[in-house]
Amino acid sequence: MRQQNSVEEIIRHAQQIRRNTIISLHSAGSGHPGGALSMVEIIAVLYFYEMNISPDKPEEMNRDRFVLSKGHAAPAYYAALAERGYFEKSALTTLRKMGSMLQGHPDMKKVPGVDMSTGSLGQGISAACGMAHYAKKTGKDYRVYCIIGDGEMQEGQVWEAFMSAGHFKLDNLVVFLDNNNLQIDGRVDEVMSIYPVKEKLQAFGWHVEETDGHNVKGLIETLDRVRQVRDQPAFIIGKTTKGKGVSFMENQAGWHGAAINDEQFEQAMKELGEACV
């Protein structure tokens, strides 16, 4: 069911998700901090306000679905699932370890609450479109949510999915762009520009909104609006900061994928404050 927590409660959950993301990445000694931290508020709003889900029934047919197309940001996804009660938070320290269910990319066969295995960029959005299309064809009323990265939008398969969703008028599909404008090789607008995003998606038949991807209240208001949209899939451009919440990671392409040493871990945890949920 939809929890619809207050703005203040969601902010607290987001802070704990961010802390646990750092804890799991430090424990793993590898992973992708930058893009995981940039999407925290988006995923917190989805799991603690928007989505119709139940951790007690992770495979309920009428549940809403979520696809993390930028699968390398899995640490924040796992932290959100644990925060929502899909599994014990103690599992987060097993990230990327032998025998752990928490691999470097999400695996729907191993992790409770994961609706689609993702990893190769560009493929998750296609899976999300397929889920939404199936729901429309069979009269199901669940909604499908997806987060993609801006570097990922350089993939051709993404644009095929956009064209398909617009053609089939998938108004049960909501896609978030984690628009931090950094990818592993540098700035997205310099490596291969995807801009202007809004106009391109509108040309593909999408309803497009833009908002601050770290503003919980704004994200909630945007999602409330797109629920009223009919005959168009919804695309929400969330303006975000790569590495958000940790000063030495913010807006640094080098933290796309890098290990966190002990000294950096201590500084990050100090900046993120005490556990609050």
Rank of each mutant, 00 (worst) to 15 (best):
I148N: 00
R2T: 12
R2G: 09
S117Y: 08
E209R: 15
L170K: 00
K89M: 12
P75G: 11
C146I: 01
F176H: 04
K140E: 13
A127L: 13
E9H: 08
T211Y: 04
G85A: 11
N261C: 11
P106D: 14
A275G: 06
S126T: 15
E199M: 12
S90P: 03
G151V: 06
A73H: 02
A14S: 14
Q3R: 14
S117N: 06
Q202I: 01
E9W: 05
Q252E: 15
H105M: 10
L173H: 01
L121Y: 02
K270N: 11
A73K: 02
A127F: 12
K198F: 02
C129L: 03
V40L: 09
G254L: 13
T240W: 04
G119N: 08
D231S: 14
V174H: 01
E155N: 11
P55V: 14
S247L: 08
M116V: 14
D262I: 01
K140P: 02
V229A: 06
F204Q: 00
E41K: 10
Y142Q: 05
A36Y: 04
V67C: 06
G243T: 10
P55Q: 14
N180F: 04
K244L: 11
E266S: 05
V197I: 15
E50L: 03
S126V: 04
H105Y: 14
S30G: 05
K169C: 07
I22M: 07
I42E: 01
T94A: 14
F248G: 08
I23S: 05
R227K: 15
M98P: 08
R227T: 01
E41F: 06
K244Y: 12
G122N: 09
Y77A: 12
E60N: 11
E250A: 13
G130S: 10
D56P: 01
G156N: 14
E88P: 10
M249G: 10
S117Q: 05
P106F: 11
A91N: 09
A91I: 07
S38R: 07
V229L: 12
R230S: 10
V158N: 15
S24D: 03
F162L: 05
Y78D: 13
G218Y: 01
I23H: 13
G71A: 10
G151I: 04
D231F: 03
H214L: 04
L121T: 01
F204R: 04
Q3K: 14
W206A: 00
K110M: 15
R18E: 07
G151N: 09
A275Q: 09
H207G: 02
L272T: 03
V226Y: 06
N180W: 05
I42M: 12
S30E: 07
D185G: 08
A76K: 05
V67R: 02
I260P: 02
Q3Y: 10
S54K: 06
V229S: 04
S38L: 06
D224Q: 15
K270I: 02
D171E: 07
G122F: 09
S126P: 03
V174L: 03
A259Y: 05
I220N: 08
G166K: 00
V216S: 12
L223N: 03
N62A: 13
G156E: 10
L92K: 11
N215A: 10
M249H: 10
S38Y: 06
T240D: 05
V191S: 02
L121V: 00
M61G: 01
Y195V: 08
Q264T: 02
R19G: 00
Q123P: 06
I23T: 07
P55C: 14
G29R: 07
M249L: 11
I125F: 07
Q16V: 07
